[in-house]
């Protein structure tokens, strides 16, 4: 099984890649190729031109500065999972990346490709929304950033424009007293998340001062759950279960493996467990 014919261009810089995008209509960027190549093999995608950006070192790497962590779009899931900087400042992102697929997929797949592809079963989107990350994009006319919560627009649809490259994400560091967790109910064959829950809670003097929960795999885009009822409580199991049961998706996605109703149910269960795990780590 192989893709339809296409022309291959390798970009040596972000500017060159942007130029190639301008030059070739319907061209596709390729980072790790771990969503694009499977789609091309199934002929679900048949781009006339593929622009390989996989070697742009300027888009790789993880660095902390001024209270947030910048992760280059071409950073692999394996590097994110193994990052000491993320373990110290945003452990939940490293945790989620470590749950992606398998070792081989993590060696090739990148964070930029993951969120640009925006599969509802992806592990990274709910974490970025939970953390309030910003996604940075570059086009010939300049750079801009968009909040992760606005970046994901619909199934496989994001705010990346046709002439834009995603350069990096900025993830605010979690403060002291904050615990976080990502829990995933995995599809047994593909390894993708059927449902994934990302949670964080901040505890001061035994009381919760802030809490967040975002669930992937239930709606077309990550679903934020209002868990503000936890603020001021001692985060008892009952309070957590009540808060997580607020998960509501107007039009849940469903497929042959898991119906919409089932996904909502599993989302509540995993949301509860993720909040409890975050509490225990706070």
């Amino acid at each position: 099984m192989y893709p339809a014919q296409f022309d291959y261009r390798r970009a040596g810089s972000v500017d060159e890649a942007l130029g190639l995008l301008q030059e070739h209509e319907d061209a596709k960027l390729m980072a790790g190729g771990h969503s694009l190549i499977p789609m091309m093999k199934l002929r679900l995608a048949q781009p006339p031109v593929v622009i390989d950006i996989g070697r742009l070192d300027e888009l790789k790497g993880i660095a902390e500065a001024g209270g947030s962590v910048r992760v280059g779009s071409l950073t692999t899931h394996a590097d994110i999972a193994a990052s000491d900087v993320l373990a110290a400042h945003c452990p939940v992102l490293a945790e989620a990346a470590g749950h992606i697929g398998d070792a081989q997929v993590r060696n090739r797949g990148t964070i930029g490709g993951n969120i640009a592809h925006a599969d509802p079963g992806s592990d990274i989107p709910p974490v970025l929304v939970l953390l309030g990350a910003s996604v940075h994009l570059q086009s010939p006319s300049g750079t801009r950033s968009v909040a992760a919560g606005d970046f994901f627009q619909d199934l496989l649809m994001t705010d990346v424009g046709e002439d834009e490259i995603l350069t990096h994400v900025d993830v605010p560091a979690l403060g002291a007293g904050t615990g976080s967790a990502y829990l995933k109910f995995e599809h047994p064959a593909s390894g993708y998340a059927v449902v994934g829950a990302a949670a964080s809670v901040t505890v001061q003097n035994g009381r919760c001062t802030a809490a967040g929960l975002v669930v992937g795999g239930v709606g077309a885009v990550p679903t934020a759950v209002d868990v503000s009822s936890l603020v001021g409580t001692d985060l008892s199991d009952d309070a957590i279960a009540a808060a997580a049961s607020g998960l509501d998706a107007e039009d849940p996605i469903g497929d042959i493996f898991a119906s919409g109703d089932y996904r909502v149910h599993v989302g509540k269960v995993y949301g509860k467990r993720a909040l409890a795990a975050a509490r225990d780590r706070a």
Partner: peptide, 8 residues
Amino acid sequence: DAVKSCTM
């Protein structure tokens, strides 16, 4: 790095 050569 271990890689699936059908996806590269």
